[in-house]
Design a protein around this nucleic acid. Structure first.
Lengths: 201, 201
DNA sequence: AAAATATGACCGAACAGTCGGTCAGTCAAG
DNA sequence: CTTGACTGACCGACTGTTCGGTCATATTTT
């Protein structure tokens, strides 16, 4: 289950290649052969580092999510008023996700798989679940600080945090099929303002 | 390209079966044989009605999107104040999408495919594109009426409409991996209130 | 130092399972 | 008898995984 040992640099190269290939071709259509090729190694070698295609999915998901959480936590620890922190958090999160274009497409598929697993009564991928919980907690902390500081109105924290995350997800989502970048930027600015306005006292 | 003729009832049965099977197993893993079986016909007969698996995807996408737009337009034509109409529109849209659980999972994959197509410089599935445009237009119409009636503040319509749709998408999205229905309902109520508050004059 | 030996990372040809799509034949209707 | 809807056994392309063998490097022996 845990990644096999050997050269960790090669293991990373495989993950990097996998992210590129799977984003381009999809989780099912992406071929191990192409990943090996992109990583500059033989097909057989991939199996020296990962037991199966599925294990690559998981390792890839872990990498992506921890990158995302790291970036969020960096934002979170910036020294800003709750108001500015939340505004920045949302804008930058969207931009980070957007820059990780490849990762974004993969997360979409993994998320869909998770939803399917839940429908089947199975356990969803726990990495994904924990990541989204920890993102929500970050937002709740900002909101709570804002209410303390009397910058925001009283609110149901969980509800507003869900709104904020829904907003982030949804915007990225919409963006994926948007070809008009300037219009998107304007929409984002207005969207954030409108959201912030809903938090005023 | 257009669906072959013959018995239209059977054609619909195939689409219905396809929606169920593809939602359960994913677009790639879903087997034609299973669809045929679920529709109560032989595998070969499927190919009397559709030329390929891909043509089934398209027909299925068309069916789902037109169902969704029909439902939205019904909401849109209700006789309510802009304020109530928007609130209702958002809540009911989320509930509609949520009830079409199978469709939701399929749309996710089709959307991801569209995003991939755009990245490749190809044309995305036009059905999806037009559908999302027409949803946005519906929201813009409501917003504009609200500003006319002095119920809403002045705003950038496109931006706020994008926010509203992002909110709907994102909420559904979050919900797909949520197992706690009551908490979700509370979050939804708070989310909508917060959103509406952002539109006040 | 040089030769002999051992190690294990690396490789890609071959294998085996899976499905989308085909088609020769069956069957029912007119 | 003719037509055409229907069927499922079959084909072949595709690709995840395996595995026997290669080779660069490290270690031991002489």
């Amino acid at each position: 289950m845990s990644p096999l040992q050997k050269d960790p640099a090669k293991s990373e190269a495989i993950i990097r290649a996998a992210i590129h290939i799977f984003a381009r071709d999809g989780l099912d259509k992406g071929k191990i052969a192409d990943i090996a090729n992109e990583a500059g190694i033989g097909k057989g070698t991939v199996y020296e580092y990962f037991r199966s295609k599925d294990e690559i999915f998981h390792a890839m998901g872990d990498t992506i999510m921890s990158d995302m959480i790291d970036a969020s936590e960096k934002l979170y620890s910036m020294d800003l008023s709750p108001h500015d922190k939340l505004r920045t958090f949302m804008r930058m999160n969207i931009e980070i996700i957007f820059e990780m274009e490849d990762a974004m497409l993969i997360m979409t598929e993994i998320w869909a798989q998770g939803a399917r697993a839940i429908k089947h009564g199975e356990h969803p991928d726990t990495t994904l679940y924990h990541a989204s919980q920890s993102m929500k907690q970050l937002v709740i902390n900002i909101l709570r600080a804002g209410v303390m500081a009397q910058e925001f109105r009283e609110m149901n924290y969980d509800g507003v945090a869900t709104l904020a995350l829904a907003f982030i997800d949804g915007f990225v989502w919409q963006f994926m099929v948007s070809t008009n970048r300037p219009a998107f930027d304007r929409a984002l600015a207005e969207g954030i303002e409108s959201f912030m306005k809903g938090l005023e006292r």
